[in-house]
Simulated scan of single mutants.
Amino acid sequence: MTPPSWQKSSYCQEGDACVHISASPATIHLTESADPAQAVLTAHPTAFAALLAIIKKR
């Protein structure tokens, strides 16, 4: 299995803790650069789209 190819958020400034995303047709992966445990949130694209829709409403 190929490891995820990560892309840094465009909202990240130099030196900030940044959100990184990796996407494939079946899976979305999110992680934060400042997390010492390097935890990865994994979601199905439909679930991730629902999360973004809720966040955008706030």
Rank of each mutant, 00 (worst) to 15 (best):
M1R: 09
M1F: 10
M1L: 11
T2K: 13
T2I: 13
P3H: 00
P3M: 00
P4G: 00
P4Q: 01
P4H: 01
S5K: 11
W6C: 03
W6S: 01
Q7F: 11
Q7L: 07
Q7Y: 04
K8T: 13
K8D: 02
S9Q: 05
S9V: 05
S10V: 08
S10G: 11
S10L: 12
Y11S: 15
Y11E: 12
Y11H: 14
Y11V: 12
C12R: 10
C12I: 02
C12A: 04
C12N: 04
C12S: 05
C12D: 00
Q13T: 03
Q13M: 04
Q13C: 02
Q13Y: 02
E14V: 15
E14N: 15
E14D: 14
G15C: 06
G15P: 13
D16W: 01
D16V: 01
A17S: 09
A17F: 01
C18H: 01
C18Q: 03
C18S: 06
C18M: 07
C18Y: 04
V19T: 12
V19A: 12
V19D: 01
V19C: 08
H20G: 09
H20E: 14
H20N: 08
I21E: 09
I21C: 06
I21R: 03
S22T: 00
S22E: 03
S22V: 01
A23C: 07
A23W: 03
A23Q: 12
S24L: 08
S24P: 13
P25Q: 10
P25S: 07
P25Y: 14
A26H: 09
T27Q: 15
T27H: 09
I28R: 02
I28S: 02
I28G: 02
H29G: 02
H29Y: 14
H29E: 15
H29F: 10
H29L: 12
H29C: 07
L30C: 01
T31C: 12
T31G: 08
T31V: 07
S33D: 01
A34W: 03
A34N: 09
A34S: 09
A34T: 02
D35L: 07
D35V: 05
D35E: 11
P36V: 04
P36G: 03
P36A: 04
P36C: 04
A37R: 07
Q38T: 09
A39H: 09
V40T: 08
V40P: 05
V40C: 08
V40N: 04
V40W: 00
L41I: 03
L41T: 07
L41S: 08
T42K: 15
T42E: 09
T42C: 10
A43Y: 08
A43P: 06
A43W: 06
A43D: 13
A43M: 15
H44T: 07
H44G: 11
H44K: 07
H44A: 14
P45D: 02
P45F: 02
P45G: 04
T46K: 13
A47V: 08
F48V: 05
F48E: 05
A49W: 06
L51D: 07
L51C: 07
L51N: 08
L51P: 03
L52C: 12
L52F: 09
A53Y: 08
A53L: 14
A53E: 14
I54T: 13
I54F: 15
I55P: 01
I55E: 15
K56G: 12
K56Y: 05
K56A: 11
K57L: 13
K57W: 09
K57T: 15
K57D: 15
R58E: 09
R58M: 15
R58H: 11
R58D: 13
